[in-house]
């Protein structure tokens, strides 16, 4: 009885369960593809559920136009990859410092890292905005003495609002990244550094020449997650950008964008149900780069977490 249960029934039940849940996950993606290539008439047609009756590229083209796609994509890519690179380097340095050195106040400093994981961005967003808007308090001084420069002291809408925190290990979810790197470096054998030290390396040379080559997959994993988090972020960037500078912001405001760019008036005769196809096309445009990355580098997403020492 028991053998029957484990040999025959369980695999069947497992297959059913997995298939059902895979459908739950894939369903929005399939629906996106199905919607993005149909005409508005198909939305009114109740017989059309999955397979569109009229295939068209127009919706994708229009959505791309509304999202100013090539330019926004390019901006987002530059911003993401730049921030992620800086963030990985600064977080790795910090994580290594926490993993391998003993110094006064280490416990308190590490408690701050934990606090960084816990504090939601919403708490610190406004004071950060003020810092950037008035250039860390320089702007009023400039205004007083060199009024011409005072005007320029405004970092809002400048990519620096993203780069500066990333550079100093304070970007999006950097607390978590510092934590991951610390766990990872603690898992590497101490002998590596002892050997390098005997060979006359100072700790920075050791880090550069010995630790980084050994930490390739951890770096890649954290980098990929960083790219994903920057790609998906709209809260932080919407605080510092008043224009729709990234894909996520564009998508978040696609509704307004569509009205402005495509339908040309708020009273255009587009029902909410028809609007879905443009929204889904926008979703498709914004997840495709991520999906491509995931398809090629999937093993670094999954194996990286396993090896990064988070579990262990």
């Amino acid at each position: 009885m028991c053998a029957l249960l484990s040999k025959k029934i369980w695999p069947l039940f497992r297959a059913l369960l997995l298939a059902g849940l895979c459908f739950v996950i894939l369903y929005p993606l399939i629906y996106m593809i199905s919607c993005a290539f149909r005409t508005p008439e198909d939305m009114k047609d109740p017989t059309v559920i999955w397979i569109p009756r009229h295939l068209t590229w127009n919706i994708m083209k229009q959505t791309m136009k509304a999202m100013k796609f090539p330019r926004t994509l390019w901006n987002t890519l530059i911003l993401n990859i730049g921030c992620s690179l800086m963030q990985v380097i600064s977080c790795a340095l910090t994580g290594y410092g926490f993993a391998r050195f003993q110094f006064k106040g280490k416990k308190i400093l590490f408690a701050i890292v934990i606090l960084m994981i816990l504090v939601p961005d919403q708490i610190i967003a406004i004071p950060r905005y003020i810092e950037f808007r008035y250039c860390f308090g320089i702007q009023p001084l400039m205004e007083k003495y060199i009024p011409a420069l005072g005007q320029m002291c405004n970092l809002i809408n400048s990519p620096l609002t993203m780069y500066l925190p990333a550079m100093t290990a304070n970007g999006i979810r950097s607390g978590l990244m510092i934590f991951l790197f610390r766990q990872f470096f603690r898992g590497l054998p101490q002998e590596l550094e002892d050997a390098a030290c005997l060979d006359g390396c100072n700790p920075f040379q050791t880090f550069l020449l010995v630790m980084i080559p050994n930490a390739g997959s951890a770096f890649l994993t954290v980098f990929l997650f960083s790219v994903v988090w920057y790609w998906n972020d709209y809260y932080v960037s919407s605080t510092f950008f008043t224009e729709n500078a990234t894909i996520a912001l564009m998508l978040k405001n696609l509704d307004t964008q569509l009205v402005n760019e495509l339908f040309h008036s708020t009273t255009a005769d587009i029902s909410p149900r028809e609007k879905i196809i443009w929204m889904e096309a926008g979703c498709l445009l914004s997840v495709t780069p991520l999906l491509l990355m995931y398809a090629f580098l999937q093993k670094y997403f999954t194996e990286g977490i396993e090896h990064s020492g988070l579990a262990g």
Partner: peptide, 13 residues
């Protein structure tokens, strides 16, 4: 050295 590794983060934080 520990402080030096943390310096970037300390400033940023």
């Amino acid at each position: 050295y520990g402080y030096q590794f943390l310096s970037l983060w300390l400033i940023g934080t």
